[in-house]
Amino acid sequence: MGDLLLRVKDLYTHFYTFEGTVKALDGISLELKRAETLGLVGETGCGKSVTALSILGLIPCPPGKVEAAEIWFDGVDLLKLDKEEMRAIRGKKIAMIFQEPATALNPVFPVGEQTAEIIRIHKQVSKREGMQKAVEMFHLVGIPDPDRVSKKYPHELSGGMNQRVMIAAKLSSNPALLVADEPTTALDVTVQAQILQLMKGLVQRFRTAVIFITHDLGVVAEICDRVAVMYAGVIVESSKTRVLFENPRHPYTRSLLQAIPKLVERIDRLPVISGTVPSLINPPSGCRFHPRCSLADSPCKVEKPSPTSVEAEHWVSCFRYDQGD
């Protein structure tokens, strides 16, 4: 497939802590095409950020340990790169944005200057040209009055405005892959809608592939082409976005969708998933979801289900996905 940009195969990331080994990722595999937006969705602690950080080579080792069959990105196996080579790729070909832009920005420099510096890392341009380009980028990400805003410090700007600054800075190198970790979670819904629309437009225009991490299935519906649902360090289901909402097959995906209050239908009680998220130090045997699953049977307790194709581009890791209603 000529259009493939990223292929992760059998990624296991563990953390060695005093309490024991945290088996945070248990064999993650995923693929991403150029210009495609993949949603990585799941509840707190399921391993979304660790997946992203593992791909980017940003897991602190120790306490972490990253093992994978391969992390292939645009023709290179990232696992074979040294720190310097990895850093070069991170700045230029892969960019990241996070939930709290203010913490990623330096509080003591104006945002324009910072953006210009980031631009100057990749483009051999003068300070002045860097600044010009920064203001151009600010304009592109819909910052009103970019000249004036470029002289402001991060704390003088709202969360939404800082996130626009981050997007401007990170997209300035025209990366092939953007990893966005909950970029709109801290924002109000009207501002979130603006940022999502902005990102959608920009990644289309620049043909940027995106790994969009979120816990909000509504956000996935807005912006992602495909989606992978994670539970306790495993991708339990992946498909085109629309298919996931219309034909969810994994018992966890189904329960998760049912637990969200809906805008349209009205019900008195929300269906709940019994039990709680398991410890990743002593994760359940077999399918990690089995203790909470209403369909669980004997093989689920001993064997780990591997991804099964349900239909085109739709994979489910469950022995009994066809036993539901």
Partner: peptide, 24 residues
């Protein structure tokens, strides 16, 4: 505008795309 801004999984929910600019 607030209702139009909700990212929702009810994909067929009819709504006008009615985005507002700026912040409170």
């Amino acid at each position: 505008t607030l209702l139009a801004a909700i990212p929702a999984i009810d994909l067929d929910r009819k709504r006008k795309r009615f985005l507002i600019s700026g912040e409170m």
